[in-house]
Amino acid sequence: MSCIEQMKYTLLLEKTSFKEGREFIEKNSDEVYYIDPGYKIFKDYYIIGVPPIAIGAKGRDLIFTYVRPCYGTFVMKIESEEEIQRLRDREKERLMASLKKGIRAEVHVSDKPVDYRSVFK
């Protein structure tokens, strides 16, 4: 049993499919982040699921899926500004990394001398 079950949580959806859980989060969150299976939240819970796995933030609440083999997918919310901030920081880092990569890919350095007529064209 993970720490989740001992925390103060609210169930938003019970015994549903993973896809329905994902769609619920996408429709009912102010911010939605996508993570890979195995992303850790709180002290010891690793998210289980079929990618893309959505995690939402609404106000101070983190909204996420919790999968149990015999009961299906639950969507629950737990108040945690810390976890929401961690998702925002992660997203910022990913964005910066992809921007850097994009800039590197766009800058093309030619070996040949530049023909300014073609530049002005």
């Binding site: 993973f18 299976p37 195995g38 289980i48 079929v50 990618p51 149990r68 083999p69 015999c70 299906g72």
Partner: peptide, 15 residues
């Protein structure tokens, strides 16, 4: 045999 089993298998595939 269920959607939940699939979620666990997908996780295994990723980790």
């Amino acid at each position: 045999h269920s959607d939940a089993g699939m979620a666990f298998a997908a996780t295994m595939s990723a980790i």
